[in-house]
Design a protein around this nucleic acid. Structure first.
Lengths: 177, 177
DNA sequence: CAGTGATTGTTACCGTACAGGACAATTACT
DNA sequence: AGTAATTGTCCTGTACGGTAACAATCACTG
C-alpha cells in the first residue's frame, strides 16, 4: 500500500487473478487447438460436435442460438465439418427451408477420441495439482463462470478464436508435445 | 465412468478445468478490454505501459523481446501510444538507430487510473470468493501458469487479442457497468 | 581507416478472418 | 392469395497477422 503512492501501477501482473486467468485461458486455448489439430478439427468444431452428440436434428439457427454465435458462422462451421465428413445436413422433417444437422458415424467414432484429447489436455494443465486441489479449482471456476454471466458451456470466443485449425501445427507453439 | 462406453463425449464442458479456464480467460480479456477502452488503451497497451512504468529508456527491440512479440507489433503498439501522447520515442543515447522509449506525464497520470481499473475488474471477477479463496486461487493459478511454460507476466495473446480497442464499447458486452 | 556483415525501426504486400448487408427459398399469419 | 418473417447462403469491404524487403546505423576486421 505504501508503494502505490509513487505510481500506483507497480502491482505485478502475475499477482492479479484476472491477468493470470486471461493468460492461462489463452494459453490453454492455444495448446488445446494444437492438440486437436491432428484430428482435423478446431476447438469450436469440438464444442459443436459435443453439442450434437447430445442431441441431433437441430436446425442451424437453433445450434447458433445455443452456442451464442451468428448463423453465418454456423454455416462455416458446418461447412468445415461436412467437408470432413463429420456432419450431415439432412432435410428438416417439418421445415423445408431449414436443415436438420446430424452426426455421421465418423463423428461418432471421432468424438470419444477428441474427448480423450481434452481429458489428457486437462490432465496436463492441472499436473501441478493433486486431486483435491483440482476438484476445488473446478468448483471455484464454476462459481466464477456462473457469476461472469457466460452461458454454461458456451465459449465466448467460439466464433473467432478457433478458426485457425487450417494452420499446420507449429512446433514452437507446443512447448512440450 | 459407466457412461463413457456409450459415447465417451458426454462429460460436460462445464466440468472440465481447461474449458472453464479458457472460457473465463476469454471473457475476462473481453471485459477488461471494454473497461480499458474508455481510457483509450487496450490490454496490450496496458501491459506495455506497465512495463515501461518500471523502467524506461529501453529500445523497441528490447521491449518486444521482453513481451514476447515481434518488432513489427511493437511498432504498432508504440504508434498507438504515441498517437495518444502516452509515450515518446527519444533518441537513444548510445545507439542512433534505436529509439529510447519513455513515458509522458500523461502516461504517468493515466497508469494509476488504469491500474485501478484492473483492480476493480479483478474485484468484480472474484466477487463470489472471499479473501481466503481469492488468495488460494491466485496461488493455484500462479502454479499452473508457471507449469504452463508461459513467461511470467507475458500474455501469449498480446499480439492479437487486444488490437480491437478502436471498436467503440458495446454496452451488450458489459454485463453490469 | 575503409569495408563487410549484423541490427534497428519501418514500410509494403499478401493471405485470411470477421462484420455487414443483401439474396432466394420457404414458412406463418391474415 | 398475399404479405411479413425466418432460414440458410453469398458477396463485399475492412482489419489483422505474418513475410519479405528496405534505409540507416552499429560492430567487427583487416
Amino acid at each position: 500500500m505504501s508503494d502505490d503512492s509513487t505510481s500506483g501501477a507497480h502491482r505485478p501482473l502475475v499477482g492479479r487473478a484476472n491477468f493470470l486467468l486471461s493468460q492461462l485461458g489463452f494459453h490453454i486455448a492455444q495448446t488445446f487447438a494444437a492438440r486437436l489439430a491432428p484430428l482435423g478439427i478446431a476447438p469450436n468444431h469440438f464444442g459443436l460436435l459435443m453439442h450434437l452428440g447430445r442431441g441431433e436434428g437441430s436446425t442451424q439457427q437453433q445450434l447458433a442460438d445455443v452456442l451464442g454465435i451468428h448463423r453465418k458462422v454456423m454455416v462455416g462451421l458446418l461447412d468445415d465439418l461436412e467437408e470432413r465428413g463429420l456432419v450431415e445436413r439432412r432435410r428438416h422433417p417439418h421445415d423445408r427451408r431449414a436443415h436438420a444437422v446430424h452426426l455421421t458415424d465418423a463423428a461418432r467414432e471421432l468424438l470419444p477420441r477428441a474427448s480423450r484429447v481434452a481429458d489428457q489436455h486437462e490432465d496436463e494443465i492441472l499436473a501441478p495439482l493433486d486431486a483435491a486441489e483440482r476438484e476445488q479449482l473446478v468448483a471455484v471456476l464454476q462459481r466464477l463462470a456462473e457469476h461472469s454471466g457466460n452461458l454454461a458451456g458456451v465459449h465466448p470466443g467460439l466464433s473467432q478464436a478457433a478458426a485457425r485449425s487450417r494452420r499446420p501445427v507449429d512446433p514452437s507453439d507446443m512447448p512440450d508435445a
